[in-house]
Nucleic acid binder design. Structure first.
Lengths: 226, 226
DNA sequence: CTCAATCGTTACAATTTTGTCACTCCCTAA
DNA sequence: TTAGGGAGTGACAAAATTGTAACGATTGAG
């Protein structure tokens, strides 16, 4: 559940955004009314996105943004700036300071939701846990590791790529030529037994589960559950 | 066989993309030179992906994108936007309107192919994005490949894991012990120069971009943009 | 400035990975 | 039933990867 930090000194606006967020999806909303509050909240709660008004009592929005982008912990949190209409300079400064998007007040809630959704999605997709779990298999793309019933199994990178191709679309037969292209980068339909050999090695390492890699004679291979 | 719709008023560019697509794999390519053509093509042929230039005669790219995302039939088609270099606002508006990726002109055909493959693949197999794109870097976790400005670079699996750890949290210093654990599985703080050597090899392969891996003396390493 | 700690770099040998070959085995179409 | 093509298997040598040791360079605290 993504966490959004809203920084604005007007309670009305915070409520408006918060309401729209809740209507849209399950977001956790944190609010802050001034710059210092915003910085502590950002550091302590690590929100997934910050909506930052530039007009703030105390430390202004630009300084907050600058501070955020300087902190190692808060650096990568996307920031959407809310600027007063026409204040082009603010907007430019904000972008220069690392804001990821901006919107002029008064803004359309719909548009803000759109931008929030996009930014949250984008940053999530850059570090989402890339784990494929099917039956007894657990493939972790981040550490290139396979676990079978929790038992770690060492795969070479070629074996990992090959298994990935197969397990990604369970039940779908992957043609030899496609596998040779995706795993080895072979572009022509080269006559080679390399694929067969690697399938053999893979099956061997999968032990009892080896037969889950099925042969489609004349076509290629597929990974089948059960 | 995936269908790609290319929308650009320059025939040269359409041909360039089309050619590269055909070299890569069996794609069906449809072309459109202006916005209206694009919308009709998208509705009638339901392509698997749309490459959309923002600079178009008649209806501009942003409006095309908006229209696409409003139509129930075309809503879920991934869109890659081509923007003029440095037009940050276009890019932001585009992402806000629901584009799935963007690329600045002039672009490297190889990089575009990578992103097309990623998006087509993603929508075919309901999985999250496995491509990390930061600056000139494009890491594809599915094929364990790194591309720098579209140029493919061979990494060993250890190098890939190491780069992944660093690039996943840009600007954040990763401690030596953490890296040794995540990449090598070393649980104790072993005294070893292995990490240093691998960092060296990685920097070497990154060429001009090697210095983006910064040393944090006494702590570890971090990946820094710029 | 000095020195100790840390990092960069090179070289090298052990190990692992990889593709190919030469079979054998099995499936299937005729 | 049989012949032919595809797939399984084991062995092997070339190539790539990897960790370590040795030494030089750099850093920063005092």
């Amino acid at each position: 559940m993504p966490t959004i930090l809203i920084v604005d000194d007007e309670e009305d606006i915070r409520d408006l955004i918060s309401m729209n967020l809740h209507r849209e999806k399950d977001y956790t909303v944190i609010e802050a009314a001034d710059g210092l509050e915003a910085l502590t909240a950002a550091k302590e709660q690590s929100p997934d996105l910050i909506v930052l008004d530039l007009m703030l009592p105390g430390m202004d929005g630009l300084n907050v943004c600058k501070n955020l982008k300087e902190g190692t912990k808060t650096k990568s949190i996307p920031v959407i700036m809310l600027t007063a209409k026409g204040r082009l300079e603010e907007r430019i400064d904000g972008l220069a300071l690392g804001a990821d998007d901006y919107l002029s007040k008064p803004f359309s809630p719909k548009e803000l939701m759109l931008r929030i959704r996009n930014l949250v999605h984008r940053s999530n997709s850059n570090q989402g846990s890339d784990v494929i779990a099917i039956g007894p298999f657990t493939l972790d793309k981040n550490v290139l590791k396979l676990a079978l019933e929790g038992e770690e199994i060492d795969l070479t990178s070629t074996e990992f790529k090959l298994l990935l191709c197969l397990i990604e679309s369970p039940g779908v037969t992957q043609e030899r030529a496609d596998l040779l292209k995706r795993v080895w980068g072979y572009n022509d339909m080269i006559q080679t037994r390399t694929l067969d050999t690697h399938i053999k090695r893979l099956r061997e390492k999968l032990g009892d589960y080896g037969p889950m890699i099925e042969t489609s004679r004349g076509i290629g291979y597929r990974f089948c559950e059960s």
